[in-house]
């Protein structure tokens, strides 16, 4: 009997521990989401009265509107380019042995090591040299470099999980290398490619540090616009826009999970 009680206590302790971790992980987001509904013009918690006016303010604020559009433009370009470039490199690294392969891998992974601050500054200097500092190009290029390691990782894992006998079977049936790529490799790698693209999109959309250096008034993305806002005002608009951010990202993940399975997309499970 006493061992039964002990067992039950251990079980409850375990559950309590898991709940504590979950609360810890979600606490900042939850606090912000609640603070967004504060009626007063201060960022306080918990609010005394509630309102949605800060959401209205966030959505109608012109800088945020422009920032959102800019961020989407940069995100679409950067993640798409990163997937194409990253997939090509991942394929080369997986399939071929060539001189300087290790060096290439190291360089492609270097954005994980070099501070984003440095990358932003570097591209700012370069862009000024070639007189591109006011355009979208430099922002997109910076984002591609930043998200490339993540995309490569994603694609590389799905490549590793790809059964090479599939390719051989197709070749045995008369498929040329190009047909093998189109009919076998691409469809089988699609979840990995899509996962990489989504990873890149979310990272790009959220990127702030390096982006701060390379954007101008015309190309300012949403995170930069939010930063500029906080420097002038401290009201729950910030919390409201953050909430919108979280909801959008969550929706994207849910859609991805519905269509492809999140495990597959993030290349957690084996492909087969």
């Amino acid at each position: 009997m006493s061992s039964g009680i002990r067992w039950r206590m251990a079980r409850w302790l375990g559950i309590a521990f898991v709940v504590a971790i979950l609360v810890y992980l979600t606490l900042p987001a939850v606090v912000v989401m609640i603070a967004a509904f504060n009626e007063k013009a201060i960022l306080s918690f918990p609010p005394e009265s509630y309102s949605v006016k800060w959401f209205v303010n966030a959505v109608t604020y012109p800088d945020f509107q422009k920032g959102f559009v800019n961020a989407v433009i940069v995100m679409l370009w950067a993640s798409t380019i990163a997937v194409v470039v990253g997939a090509t490199f991942a394929f080369a690294v997986d399939r071929f042995r060539f001189r300087g392969k290790a060096l290439l891998e190291a360089i492609l992974m270097s954005p994980l090591v070099v501070p984003k601050f440095t990358i932003g500054l570097g591209f700012l200097i370069l862009a000024a040299q070639v007189d591109m500092s006011r355009g979208f190009t430099v922002v997109v290029v910076t984002h591609v470099v930043l998200v490339l390691p993540f995309v490569m990782r994603c694609v590389y894992v799905s490549l590793r999980n790809l059964d090479r006998d599939m390719e051989r079977a197709a070749e045995a049936l008369g498929a040329s290398p190009l047909m093998v790529l189109i009919k076998i490799d691409l469809p089988l790698l699609l979840p990995g490619l899509f996962g990489g693209w989504m990873f890149a999109a979310i990272l790009s959309f959220n990127e702030f540090t390096a982006t701060l250096f390379v954007t101008g008034a015309r190309t300012e993305t949403l995170p930069v616009a939010m930063y500029n806002y906080v420097r002038e005002f401290v009201d729950p608009t910030m919390a409201a826009i953050s909430t919108i951010f979280i909801v959008l990202t969550a929706l994207l993940l849910i859609v991805a999970d519905r269509f492809l399975g999140l495990g597959k997309v993030l290349a957690i499970e084996e492909g087969r």
């Binding site: 059964d163 006998d165 599939m166 051989r168 079977a169 045995a172």
Partner: peptide
């Protein structure tokens, strides 16, 4: 034509 050990069905 070839049959593989793990069948390699697409």
């Amino acid at each position: 034509g070839m049959v593989f050990q793990n069948y390699a069905l697409f």
